[in-house]
């Protein structure tokens, strides 16, 4: 086994259990109690935040999802409507199904591509060389633009009929489309935008790569393992917690994507609802139609769906995410 040392972190061996001894167990118990106390001490800011700040808006929105709350009328007029909002969403709201379709298409294509791009560039820019920081910065630049209003103008200039993309295509003698205003293509331009802003997962990957202990590679080199082997047997397993993080968070954020779709469609989700992501539908219902109760129901349906995906991720994570702390 040439790669024993290198592959060890991939299959962490739990420390051998200490021999059962009376005194030892007693001490363990005491230390476990003090650890439990410490746990609550460290957790206290978050617990206070949860109870004082995070929980109330969430629970209120859950409650409102069973009401006709319309934002502007005073709270005395809030009426309990049972499951009406939920029923309406599934039976009487064609835009709901449209936005689900758009969001799924968007997420299933854009999220994996964005992750692949960010991992690829992170690997390329991992080695410390002169000027590598500047390169990282420049790849991060598009993300710095965030959801700025400038984006709306830029994306039109790139992807309408007179845009830069078509100018590029014309070099090859191809006459391009009015991509961003074509209901069949507008979503693709939104995906390109999302992938283009791959800076955040890239930085997380970079930070993760920095955490892989160098001695593992040194040992592997001594053992004569090829670069490819090192990648699959050291880098990937050691990076897996971070890959898991990026996969989960990009999925959550990707399906919650709002700002860029809102900005480049000027809030319309158009043309023909082709960029109407789920969150745009929520926004329309909440702030244009003043149906906040209904919007809250939409949001909780979203929570249930994405929660399910999250559970699936966590349970499959057991099989491929390797934690150096020896737990799963």
């Amino acid at each position: 086994m040439a790669l024993t040392t290198a592959s060890r972190p991939a299959l962490p061996v739990p420390a051998p259990a200490p021999p059962p001894a009376r005194g030892r167990r007693k001490k363990n118990y005491a230390s476990r109690r003090s650890e439990g106390l410490a746990g609550y001490v460290f957790l206290s800011p978050w617990l206070i935040g949860l109870m004082a700040i995070t929980a109330f808006p969430m629970l209120l929105s859950l409650y409102l999802s069973f009401t006709n709350y319309d934002v502007l009328s005073s709270w005395e007029f809030v009426e309990w409507v049972g499951f009406d909002n939920y029923k309406k969403i599934f039976t009487l709201d064609p835009t709901f199904w449209q936005s689900v379709r758009v969001t799924l298409t968007f997420g299933l294509i854009a999220i994996p591509l964005k992750l692949a791009a960010s991992l690829g560039v992170a690997l390329l820019l991992n080695k410390e060389r002169r000027g590598v920081g500047l390169f990282r910065g420049m790849f991060y630049l598009p993300s710095l633009l965030g959801g700025s209003v400038a984006l709306a103008l830029v994306w039109v200039a790139m992807f309408n009929r007179e845009g830069a993309f078509n100018a590029g295509l014309s070099l090859f003698g191809i006459e391009g489309n009015n991509w961003i205003n074509d209901p069949d293509w507008a979503l693709s331009t939104l995906m390109v935008l999302t992938i283009w802003q791959f800076g955040a997962p890239m930085v997380i990957f970079l930070a993760g790569l920095k955490q892989v202990p160098t001695e593992l590679y040194e040992a592997a080199q001594v053992d004569g393992a090829s670069k490819t082997r090192q990648f699959f047997h050291i880098t990937l397993p050691m990076l897996s917690p971070v890959i898991f993080f990026n996969l989960l968070l990009e999925t959550i954020n990707g399906f919650q994507g709002f700002t860029s779709a809102f900005v480049i469609s000027n809030g319309t989700g158009g043309p023909l609802g082709s960029t109407k992501l789920y969150t745009l539908h929520i926004y329309d219902k909440a702030f244009t139609d003043f149906q906040m109760g209904y919007a809250s129901a939409l949001a909780w349906i979203f929570l249930a769906a994405i929660g399910l995906i999250t559970i699936v991720f966590f349970s499959t994570g057991k099989f491929w995410v390797h934690y150096s702390d020896g737990e799963n």
Binding site: L50, L60, S61, F287, M292, F302, L303, G307, T310
Partner: peptide, 15 residues
């Protein structure tokens, strides 16, 4: 903690 990540923000603004 993970669950607090999942709810779309627009329904939380008013509460």
């Amino acid at each position: 903690m993970i669950a607090t990540l999942l709810l779309p923000g627009h329904v939380l603004i008013v509460p």
